[in-house]
Each structure stands twice: as C-alpha cells, then as structure tokens.
Write a protein that binds this DNA or RNA. Sequence first.
DNA 1: ATACAATTTAACCAAATGGTTGACAAAGAT
DNA 2: ATCTTTGTCAACCATTTGGTTAAATTGTAT
Lengths: 205, 205
Amino acid sequence: MVNSKIDISTEQKILAAAKKVFLSKGMAGARMQDIANEAGINKAMLHYYFRSKEKLFEVIFFEAAQKLFPTINLIFESDMSLFEKIENFAEQYITMMSENPYLPLFVLNEVSKGPEVFIRKIWSKQSGPHPQKFLAQIEKEIKKGNIKKISPLHLLINLISATIFPFVAKPMIQFTLGLDELQFKNVMEQRKKEVAKLIIDSIKR
Amino acid sequence: MVNSKIDISTEQKILAAAKKVFLSKGMAGARMQDIANEAGINKAMLHYYFRSKEKLFEVIFFEAAQKLFPTINLIFESDMSLFEKIENFAEQYITMMSENPYLPLFVLNEVSKGPEVFIRKIWSKQSGPHPQKFLAQIEKEIKKGNIKKISPLHLLINLISATIFPFVAKPMIQFTLGLDELQFKNVMEQRKKEVAKLIIDSIKR
DNA sequence: ATACAATTTAACCAAATGGTTGACAAAGAT
DNA sequence: ATCTTTGTCAACCATTTGGTTAAATTGTAT
C-alpha cells in the first residue's frame, strides 16, 4: 500500500515514446497506439500511468517548453554584459536545438493551434519567456551611448529569429541546399558565431 | 454532357473553407465535417468535387506553397542589384505574410511532417525555392570587393530568418510582448526596413 | 505461506471520422 | 415534354481511435 517502489522503468518508457511520437507528429497526428508500440507496452498502460491523451500530451508539452524558455530567461536575466548575453544566447540555444531539432517547431506549432488555456498555463508557471530585463538593458546601453540607437524590440526579434528559424525550417533548408545531417549540423555550428557577429555588428558603434 | 457551366461557386466555397480549416488546424487536425460546416454544404460534396481528404489537402497545400516560394524565386532570379533584392524581399514577403499570417507555419509544419513524396513534388514543379542565383550573386559581389567577405549561405539564412520567423512565432511574440493584432501589424510594418537595414549593414563595407 | 496492493494484458466499447449510396432536384439538350 | 447529365443531400457504412474492464500476474509486507 505504501507507494514504495513503483517500477519507474515503464513510466519512463512511456514518456520517452510519447516524446518521440508527439514531437514528430504533433498532438493531432499522434496515435495512442503509436506511443504504445514505440514503448513496447500495452496501450492500456498509457491510461494507467497518465489518464488521457491530453494529460500525457501536457506532460510532454511542458517538458518541451521548460527546455526552451528557461534557457532564454536564465541568460536574459543574468547580469552579463549585453554582448555576452547575445553570444551566450546564440551559443547555448543552438547547442540545445542541435540536440533536439524537433523541439522549436513542435512548441511553436502547438502554441499556435492550442487553445489559449495552454498558453496561459505556461506563462503563469513562469516558464514563458521574460525578455523585459533584456529589453531594459538594451535601452540603458543606448542611453549610455555604448551602442547604436536601435529599436530594442527589433533587436530582440532579430536575435531569436536568426537563432531559432534555421531549426524550424530545417527540412526545407536541407532539401533546398542539399545538405545532409552532418553538413547541416556543421552549418549550425558555424552559426553560433555567425549569429552573434550579425547581431553585435548591428549595434556596435 | 459538355462540361459547360459547372456551378463554380460551390467548388470555390469548398476551397475557401478548406484553406481556412487546413491552415489553422493542419492536415492531421482538420476534420472533413469542419470544412463542410465552414462552407455551409453537405459533407458528401467534398468527395464529389475532390476525391478524398488527401486530394483536397494537396490542392490547398500546393496553393500555399505557390504563394510562398515563387515570390522568393522571382526576386532572387531577377537582375536587381544585391541590395535591391534584399530590400524587395523583406518588403514583399512581409506584406504577403501580413495578409496570410498562418501560411508560413502551415507550410513549414506540413513539410516537416509530410512524407518526402510531398517535398519532391513541390521541388519537381519548380515551385520550390531556388536561391542559387542569389548565392552566386553574393559571391560575385564579394570578389568584386563591393561587400564584406561573408558566407553567402549564412547571409541567405539570416535574411529569410529575420523576415519569416516573426510570423512563425506570431502568437508567442504577441503574448510575450503583449501586442494586439494592430500593434503586431505595425511592428511588422517597421520590420520591412529594419530587416533590410540589418542585413545590408552586415555586408556593407 | 498468505493476504493485499500494484502492474500488465487481451478483449471490449462507444464515439468520431473518412468515405459511400441511393434518392431526388435542377438544368440542359433533344 | 421528356430524357440525360450534373449537383445536392440525408442516411448509412467500415474503420480508426481514445478509453474501459475484468481477469491475471507480479511484488510486498506480515
């Protein structure tokens, strides 16, 4: 009766399988049977450990969101210099995405389709992005005359666009330019410095 | 028996409804009944005019792809100067996306999920993007010493990232920054010049 | 050992979903 | 007028899909 030693292995197998299936097919395209097959277990187990498809999806979705946003916030809210933040953001984010290429498109897509209730849940848990401190820092640097007068808003959008978009458009970029997995990874590796250079050069006086 | 005057109105109603539903819910999330309701007609009509969900989806998908890619190609393959191309691309693309905000995420998402057969069909129809001439032009300008020595590949990726990403991440940007529809549209309007400036400044010597 | 709780499975079930059918109305063509 | 083609619909069908159940198996504390 003590909760004692629930075999964590099955639950983990389900989570791993669900992550794989949801990330590649999305909530609407994923089938519970797919997840069960992928995990090599009976479909009923999915409902035993997680009550419904929606609940299971939420777990995976928040896990994904946690991986995406706190990274931004940790960097944006640290007390690094502006240039250091830009360099760190490009570096860390591209590293993370290289290891989880499906993540950004998955989250972006579900956020855009999902009902607002999801979005509110993320933000209310402080898991959403908080770029305010970063924006304020930019304004301060402008006032101090350390960087060019640019719109902080567009600077932020430029940075995240240049960093994230290549992964959202990965299959299309690969096909259009004829890059295999390794080549794509190399290009993204170069991009860590390329993005930092692009953004920093655009504000350096 | 002559094909004479098929009432085009019903077919158009279906196409408009299908576009709306597919673009907002995606292939997997869309229901035939939704489309019929949206069009205000009987579900059987969908199968009368288009044979199956897949066929109907393909029509909408290619229509969407046609709207996205030929725009790129027309600009990239014209004989404008490099700077003009960059300015024109940002301008025209942002205009088009402001009118069809769901388009980029829809296409990107379906391309990433869809089987390769889709992708090949697009490219084989010359509907896919062909940035080769643009890339060659960049190299030429570098050799002529007109612009800085940068990677043409990253320049291209920077340009399309800065242009397209804000629309892919629209709901998230809106929520994070608290922008309503009008404010978002205004920011995107500013971006036409902001993007051109960012990219051109990064290569101007 | 034995009782009791936790885990796992095969078989089911009801609702949803893509697709079909047959009757019927509208519109031309003869 | 009537015959034929085209367009429309309500009802229906087969399969898929998320979810349930009851029985069996495994683990655990006494």
